[in-house]
Design a protein around this nucleic acid. Structure first.
Lengths: 218, 218, 218, 218
DNA sequence: CATGAATGAGTGTTCATTCAT
DNA sequence: AATGAATGAACACTCATTCAT
């Protein structure tokens, strides 16, 4: 490898690296202060540069949000596609999707927070139309999955499908607001517990802690 | 009753009515556009007056948010207190609290949305310190309730209490984002379905539709 | 006339008056410093208010330029139409058009300067498309007029029509750069002298001293 | 001649060539977009380099305009001096000056456009004081020439000298805005036609159509 | 010679707020 | 109660300029 080639690679890599670095910083700040309430200067301060300097790397504040969100969504959907293509039954698919969702939160926590809090407003702009498309696709995926689960006898038939969908969707994504990567519980730990709650409920019963004299029956 | 007195009363009542009217409008607009992204002029436009005229009724934009949120929280806590003072067991208390939460959403939907989306940022200001206090009180109430439920044998002991707390809290409040008062499902309907999901899970099993050979036990 | 009515009229008139006042100030500043090089604050300073206050009256800097230019063009074309509809021969029409042009300069000097210096750049924006239309219409009018004059035997046939058109057009409008309303020479004085130069040339010769059989009197 | 010397010469020549190239590009862009409205990056883009790289060649944006304008003015005045030193009568001097002016436009079209549009604003800066001097010298030259022409019986005495001066000055220079080098009419063609208009007017009369004893043919 | 990244002052514009009427 | 006009600080963004490489 010639020094020249190494140089070029280093430069290209460095550029991409700087971009990613700045985006990570911006995502963090947008997530914690809110996109609309965050000034470009605050992002720049957090990155240790001046406000105007961000515009060397990005076209606009909107462009930053765009890149943050689309990177997250692309990554998340890639993971979802792998799961959906695996030919699992509804129950196992749901488990895998939930696990992948928490892993997405783990990898893109600030982006998920932004998605959660701002996508409704952002989606009114042409540039963020893909947020609506993602939302539609997401809803379709979940409704299909839940209906299939009911047909397969894996999920209850007495619950409103639309409600179940919102219930799971909201609960998973909103967790990004408090999840801390590297904390006491890993993303997979949390996924496991959430699945237990989703699937079996928080109520004590025989099949969970098999013992006579369960309070529910008293 | 002199005409004068009646006049004064009428004026006072009218003033209070106008205030409430404007607050309702402001809450709607804050909820749909986001507090930070909403301009005072947008609120005024929605109310059919000019921007400056709002300052006859309110000291500031912050004061509007303050009144919207504290009105909602006062009302919600009053309902919670009634439940907590009723001497119910943990399981019934949980059901009643969830029901009251959805009723709060029904009565204060825009305020709940604002609370959900903005309280984290607003709470950094002195004026909104009570948001943090409410949050602490809320968390304490739930953790106590869940622990009591475990002791009473009503709730599973194998789940992380903190996780259960967040699970229920988030799921209930975030519903304000899509709930439409007067829609297909009433607040009480939704509460009932949510409770079914929380307590029993979405998975088909014997305790819900008792049948031998349930997949879970095989 | 009731005081009420007078009040309303006064308010409406005052509003229109303020607008016109600010536009006149803006036109002056744009004309003297150049549109692009003029800051909104400079316009505001000249008007004795703060930069942001201009935005109560106008949507944008561009909107000011727009209103300045379109007001001028509307007024000018109205005057031209009166002339063109009067059924004069080419020679008299040319004189009247030139006179009206200098009167337009007299009434809208700063606007004419802006038109002269900035219309080429402004016209690239959608909003100022009418500048190009006006230019096209202007050119058509002049070429028709000059050709008609040649047919009527009033103007020389040995000169390039396009060149004649540009010659007159440029020379008239560029005069806005130095013309001072209320100066030594009135707009009509200057028009008369310019017509003498256009029509007869600056060269001394016999045809300028009236003699029988002059084409102008035929 | 050593390779070294040749190299140095080549480099020096190349540098001067690159400079001239960049200046020509800059002049073109300044002329078409307006000096104030043109960004250094636009100039650099047009030259195929990055914005910062221009600063290897020039100290500042102002320095580019300076060099563009002074090069043009030096060249133009050199041509004027040759004419003025030739001992011609007023009439022939005027013709020669006009011809040289159109040749200057031919050689320096973008510079003339910049001069026309921006010199008023630029001249307020110390660095461009020479623009005012050139203007004064220009005016003096023309007024002297016109007055001499009147004394020599070549030009009409019934026209305002100041007006005649502005008339010719404006009309000639403003032509740079539409003149295209290499177009249908050469600079000398246009000069000839303009002189015909200036001197004889556009009005048809007997003296323009060749007849015995015509002053033009004598 | 040129680049890539940054600077920092300034630009058009927004907006919560004020206040005389 | 509400208006109309203004304020002034802040904002997103631009741009001439610098400089290490």
């Amino acid at each position: 490898m010639s020094p020249r080639r190494r140089d070029t690679e280093g430069t290209a890599a460095a550029r991409a690296g700087r971009r990613a670095e700045l985006l990570a910083t911006a995502a963090e700040v947008f997530a914690s202060r809110g996109y609309a309430a965050t000034t470009v200067r605050e992002v720049a301060d957090a990155a240790g540069i001046l406000g105007g300097s961000l515009y060397y790397h990005f076209d606009s504040k909107e462009a930053m949000a765009d890149e943050i969100l689309s990177t997250f969504l692309d990554d998340m959907w890639a993971a979802y596609e792998r799961v959906l293509g695996a030919g699992l039954n509804a129950r196992d698919t749901l488990e895998a999707i939930v696990v992948e969702s928490f892993r997405s939160i783990d990898r893109h926590r600030p982006a998920v927070v932004i998605y959660q809090n701002e996508s409704k407003h952002l989606a009114t702009s042409e540039r963020f139309r893909y947020l609506n498309e993602s939302r539609r696709r997401f809803q379709e995926m979940w409704l299909n999955l839940l209906e299939r689960g009911v047909r397969e006898g894996a999920f209850r038939a007495d619950l409103d499908a639309g409600l179940m969908y919102r219930f799971i969707r909201d609960t998973v994504w909103v967790a990004a607001n408090w999840y801390e990567p590297g904390g006491r519980l890993s993303a997979d730990d949390i996924a496991k517990q959430y699945l237990a709650m989703f699937l079996e409920g928080i109520q004590a019963n025989g099949s969970q802690e098999p013992e006579p004299g369960d309070a529910r029956t008293s």
